[in-house]
Design a protein around this nucleic acid. Structure first.
Lengths: 337, 337
DNA sequence: TTGTATGCGTTATCAT
DNA sequence: ATGATAACGCATACAA
């Protein structure tokens, strides 16, 4: 049975108020009193009960991070940085997975009694809708920061890269390498999601910049941004009468699958088909060939997101702000000559 | 301001007791009363405050999962399964990272006020010591289930594969492929940690089974089981006057790094050197060559671990049990002929 | 079947 | 500077 504030107070012959003052580092407390109380705290191995503290203060010291699937490398690398950044500020992180499932996402966002279990929420959706977020926000009032969605400007805090520019640079790089038949993998069937739409826009802009034609036939969907999706789409491209000479994948994971498919089709990377992704996951650095990509600064994203969230927890009336994280083209073997 | 039990009671003209009964699905409550209360609950959009409930009941509905680093694929894949298995039972999961850092691990385990923030703990250490666990357990009394440590039998619940057998089968497979100079990567400098020691034992047993000599020179350490560790160690092996013709890596991540190193050294896999790992992470299935490995059933591990933990939460006096998870050799290109 | 009252362990208000 | 005491929101022992 853990010792309580009362136990300590009784044993030290003082009031709970005094003990509480010592514990929470209150200024007006005499040195001798302080020492006496501290000794008893040591003796009884007292630790404050965070649940009781939370009930009183309304602060839990926990944040929620919602991602589609934690085992997708980009999200696990992001989670690592988020957990670290949160720890620096004294917060712990709860992770929820939406499983790329709309129904599940709904439940999670609007879910029953989640409220008050955490002080704020970091939401990194692959797909999500503004309405859902509006509902969440208005119903629970939980401070919310979006990761990777640059669409809902003004309404929510968010931190993300400039997706259009990132995609454009990736494709421009392929053009610069002399590629002309450039396919894209990762467009979403529905046009309602920000990230794929923006990357599609960047892809199209780069082709237009280069005076290349836009061909919808060369934009393949990838519902889950998984290795399997990338494999499937690339294999389909390889089997066509006229093959692409480069593929821009909307994520590194898609690219990993695509490279394997190209190899299985008896072709080479980058010889026959150059491949570039987005994310810069570590897996891409060790593959054969190593993967060219657009690197996102996840520690930066995590730090800024945590910063915004804590600011908003502190002052819920603050205006929503939009933070653009830096990105950087990283050229490796998969697009080398 | 969220509605409380009292608000609902007042509005419905009943006592808090009655509302509480309705909310928690108490059996003895008249149907009309039930409906009346439910209607008010809807109206006020009432949700029970989980913190208050926790203070009262002592149950938080949260579990902690402690891993070295969440962005290590094996752990993120395990985390996915743990979160899912916990969700099925109505629990949420908090993730903590020890960062492979002993000091940090200490803090985390013995840490201040963590207690009572979760009902139980799943601990999946790369490295840890029995003493630390003893301290944790005795001090906080938090129900604890170990993942992947088969050493502390009898003292703690744990679920893990038979590491000795898994390693032995992997190495036997290499022998069966005609390999004779079989190196190992992943031994820990200190001999105090269970997993590496057991895998070392399996490696040695398989060599002995095959009548092959044991050479300490061919057992390379890998402090973090990272791709970089695997790369470094394999590169060193490649530069020796007599190279191995096979490498047994204690984890798939090490194997990924090793394969890249062998390639960079101008050699081929499996032509010059065959490579096998342990874990069966998805990354290994898409690499070139695809990675032979020993597959662990992480969904099984997660389910069993959650099951044990909940049983122990329910009845802390239960005897500790040891669950052996199945493993299976998976042969792919990296050890093919 | 339902109402009343107490306590979970803190923090914070009001005295002194 | 410190003591007494009232919440925080819920669950439950005890009554009715």
């Amino acid at each position: 049975m853990p010792a309580t504030l009362r136990d300590v107070a009784d044993r030290a012959g003082v009031s709970v108020r005094t003990v509480s003052n010592v514990v929470s580092g209150y200024t007006h407390v005499s040195e001798q009193m302080r020492e006496r109380v501290m000794r008893v705290i040591e003796e009884l191995d007292y630790r404050a009960n965070p649940v009781a503290r939370t009930l009183r203060t309304g602060r839990t010291g926990a944040l929620a991070l919602v991602v589609p699937e934690i085992d997708v490398p980009y999200f696990s690398e992001l989670a690592r940085d988020v957990i670290d950044a949160a720890a620096v500020q004294g917060y712990r992180v709860m992770i929820d997975q939406t499983g790329n499932d709309h129904q599940r996402e709904r439940e999670l966002l609007l879910g029953e009694d989640r409220t008050m279990l955490f002080d704020g929420m970091l939401f990194s959706p692959l797909v999500t809708s503004a309405e859902l977020l509006e509902m969440k926000h208005s119903r629970s009032g939980v401070p919310l920061v979006l990761l990777g969605e640059h669409e809902f400007d003004g309404r929510f805090d968010h931190v993300a890269i400039d997706n259009v520019a990132a995609a454009r640079e990736a494709v421009a790089h392929l053009v610069g390498r002399g590629r002309r038949r450039i396919a894209a993998i990762g467009a979403q069937p529905e046009e309602e999601y920000a990230t794929p739409r923006q990357r599609t826009a960047g892809y199209e802009a780069a082709l237009t910049d280069a005076g290349l034609p836009l061909d919808p036939e060369w934009m393949l969907p990838a519902p889950h941004y998984s290795r399997a999706d990338g494999y499937r789409a690339a294999m389909e491209l390889c089997e066509r009468p006229t093959r692409p000479d480069a593929i821009f994948c909307f994520s590194d994971l898609l690219a990993v699958g695509a490279i394997r498919a190209i190899f299985d089709a008896g072709l080479s990377v980058p010889g026959d088909i150059a491949v570039i992704g987005i994310d810069d996951i570590e897996e891409g650095r060790y593959g054969r060939p190593s993967l060219s990509t657009v690197s996102l600064d996840t520690p930066f994203i995590a730090r800024e997101a945590i910063g915004r969230l804590l600011a908003r927890i502190d002052d819920p009336t603050e205006a929503a702000r939009s933070i653009v994280a830096p990105h950087r083209l990283v050229v490796r073997e998969s697009t080398a000559d």
